[in-house]
Amino acid sequence: MKRRIKRFGVVQTAAMFALVYFVFMAILMIPIGLFMTLAGLSRFSEHYSFLNGFGSGILFLFLPFVYAVIVFVMTAIACLVYNLIAKWIGGIEVEIADEIDRTKNPFQ
């Protein structure tokens, strides 16, 4: 059975994508940020400033939040554009199969 996606809920879709990307970025960036912060605290040479390592480490800790905000805004804009275009051409067409519930009658 073919169905069309007529519209996306803008806020719900944007929030979902922002949270997914926040989790991915947190998994990647928080360990890097902690490592860079510790590296910045442990290196005291005249060519390597204390704030360079520490500051960039702190930046990596905040990147998941910044990335989530950017993804939220961009996804909201994309959903608005999709909803506008879908009114004109009908949206994305998908084919959905009905599943048979075999728990009620296993011999169907």
Rank of each mutant, 00 (worst) to 15 (best):
Y67Q: 12
I89D: 14
F62E: 08
V71D: 06
R102K: 15
S42I: 07
G9A: 12
Q108I: 12
G9R: 14
G55A: 03
G40V: 00
T37G: 10
I77D: 02
A18N: 01
L63P: 01
H47V: 14
Y67V: 07
M29S: 09
Q12H: 10
F50Q: 11
L28M: 11
Y21F: 14
R102C: 04
F65M: 04
A97I: 05
V69E: 05
I27H: 05
G90R: 04
L28H: 07
T13P: 06
I27N: 08
L84D: 12
I5P: 05
I85W: 14
F107M: 12
L61K: 02
I85K: 13
V23A: 11
F35H: 13
G33D: 02
G90P: 03
M36E: 07
V23P: 06
G91Q: 05
I96Y: 09
M16D: 09
A78S: 10
L38I: 11
Y21K: 08
R7I: 03
K2H: 15
L28D: 04
V20F: 15
M29K: 07
F22Q: 00
Y67C: 09
M16K: 11
R7C: 07
A14F: 00
L38T: 07
R43G: 02
N52C: 07
T13K: 13
N105K: 10
K6Y: 04
S49V: 02
F22Y: 05
F72K: 00
F50T: 09
F24A: 14
I100R: 14
L84N: 11
H47Q: 15
P31Y: 08
G55C: 04
C79R: 04
V71L: 10
R102M: 15
M16W: 09
E95C: 08
K6N: 14
T37M: 08
L59R: 03
Q12K: 14
S56Q: 12
I70H: 10
S45A: 08
I85E: 15
M74N: 06
R7H: 10
T37L: 08
P64A: 08
G33T: 02
V71N: 01
A15V: 04
A86Q: 03
V11R: 10
L84F: 12
I77M: 10
A78P: 01
K104F: 03
I70S: 13
A78Q: 08
L61Y: 00
I96G: 08
K104E: 09
K87L: 12
S49E: 10
A68Y: 01
D98W: 06
R3E: 14
G9F: 05
G90M: 05
F35N: 14
Y82W: 01
G33A: 06
L84P: 00
F107T: 09
Q12G: 11
T37D: 00
A18P: 00
F35A: 15
C79H: 03
L61Q: 06
Y67N: 12
F50G: 09
M25Y: 07
K6E: 12
F62L: 15
V10R: 01
V10E: 04
A76L: 03
K104H: 04
L84V: 05
V71E: 06
R102E: 13
R3T: 13
R3F: 13
T13H: 07
V69S: 11
G53A: 07
